[in-house]
Deep mutational scan, measured.
Amino acid sequence: MASQGTKRSYEQMETDGERQNATEIRASVGKMIDGIGRFYIQMCTELKLSDYEGRLIQNSLTIERMVLSAFDERRNKYLEEHPSAGKDPKKTGGPIYKRVDRKWMRELVLYDKEEIRRIWRQANNGDDATAGLTHMMIWHSNLNDTTYQRTRALVRTGMDPRMCSLMQGSTLPRRSGAAGAAVKGVGTMVMELIRMIKRGINDRNFWRGENGRKTRSAYERMCNILKGKFQTAAQRAMMDQVRESRNPGNAEIEDLIFLARSALILRGSVAHKSCLPACVYGPAVASGYDFEKEGYSLVGIDPFKLLQNSQVYSLIRPNENPAHKSQLVWMACNSAAFEDLRVLSFIRGTKVSPRGKLSTRGVQIASNENMDAMESSTLELRSRYWAIRTRSGGNTNQQRASAGQISVQPAFSVQRNLPFDKPTIMAAFTGNTEGRTSDMRAEIIRMMEGAKPEEMSFQGRGVFELSDERAANPIVPSFDMSNEGSYFFGDNAEEYDN
């Protein structure tokens, strides 16, 4: 993207840094990872977990959730003011799984939030270390993106479920800051804005008074975040219109849905970061690795190297396929839920299948599930090659597409044709070009129609051997075009429920 120079890199967003050079960025990201790792080690000690239990991804998720809940100030305040039966607002906890007599047992633990905050700050040299908290939120978000298709949420806001490739980060909490905003897809931002506008339509006082002023500035800020994701002048001009509207209503909703559809071809720039579970960072720190000293990046080879040398386990339900569970977590670790499966298959070195073909449910185990038949197995999170994460949407291309997802959002900077089903997408653009945004709409449609099938995206960008740390010898991959490109292809993934 041309304006790259004016933006802070995501590592800076990730670490609240002012302008830093590459070495400083690597050190501050490393410091953040160190903090998460030290916190995780301490929690495993508190909970008396064995090494194996500490490497269980379900335990990692519970521990991450506990610290996120302990620092969720708004919710904590709300819980104190609106006490609900049987919930102690000062405590947080969740299921911890232990191996007892050759069987997995679930144990519900409860801790004072104050105590968890103390352990977290102690692991982070006394700081609140917001960057580390956001990092864990993005890992949870990436896992949700890989596990669930947001059909219901899309339909509720009037969008087409086939636009799911635009929904990265749709389950990120509001408090995820600049680093969170960077990884949100165009569809996620559109959905947040539509929800806001709908509230304004239904509630006369939404934009009024002292609160209304705050609401208005939040609305304009979200519009600017979305505008910054678009790469064409016409899309940005249309966002200006939406932002400046005196009284946002149905016309703005129409414009936003139009823009979301246009992003299936004229893709937005959305950041991709490899955020790993805390149970990967903990053992690495415990083994003596100093992330701050060595430096770390979320968008280069580092996460690949770390996963190459990590042992992570997962509980497996009786009829689940461990290899499929591994694929789910591998995609989440690489922030690749909406990437082209052919690119992923090449990088991973084994075939990556669409969601609907995987015999696996989510990673988390519900409290009512029976533990008797639970097994555990090693997650295979290694890769054959590594590639640089991208934040450009890439230019655009036609490809055989599917009944489910009709476009992709690249996660890796790797040369390819970008699949999208042009006739299906263009069919949504018939007729409606009147109104105050008509010239911009016409211009956007013209650009979409001009998108050429034979153009290559990320020209000359390749993948790298894991021994090639400096990215000196790019390998331009070859793809098996007979395979499906979309992950949520004609899909039956479970729906995400809060």
Rank of each mutant, 00 (worst) to 15 (best):
R150M: 05
A332Y: 07
E469Q: 02
V155T: 00
S438C: 14
S297D: 13
D340S: 14
N250T: 02
A178I: 09
K87F: 12
Q122I: 02
T433E: 01
E73G: 04
N224A: 14
G228R: 09
Y281K: 09
R416E: 12
I257Q: 03
I316E: 10
E454Y: 14
D112P: 05
A131V: 04
Q168R: 09
R236N: 15
Y78T: 06
F479N: 08
N59V: 05
G460R: 01
M167G: 03
A401E: 13
D16Q: 01
D145S: 10
F258K: 10
L418P: 15
R26A: 01
V312I: 08
M447T: 04
D290E: 06
F346D: 15
G177L: 08
G17A: 05
M426T: 15
I475F: 12
P477T: 11
R19V: 05
M32S: 13
E443P: 07
D127A: 08
L61V: 15
R216I: 13
Q42N: 06
D72M: 13
E81I: 00
E252V: 14
K357T: 01
M137E: 07
S262K: 07
M189N: 06
A451E: 01
F338M: 14
D51N: 00
S217L: 13
L315W: 08
I425Q: 11
N144W: 11
A123G: 01
V29P: 09
T6V: 11
S482K: 04
K103F: 13
F479T: 14
L379F: 09
G93K: 13
Y296T: 12
Q327K: 08
Y296M: 12
R121E: 09
I301T: 14
R246A: 13
K227N: 15
R361N: 10
L341M: 08
L266M: 01
L154A: 04
I201G: 03
E81W: 15
G268C: 12
M43W: 09
E465F: 10
E244W: 10
R152H: 07
T378L: 01
Q20I: 09
E465D: 05
I119K: 14
D421Y: 05
N395T: 02
A131C: 05
R389F: 02
I96Y: 08
L266K: 10
M191L: 05
F39V: 14
S438A: 15
A278E: 09
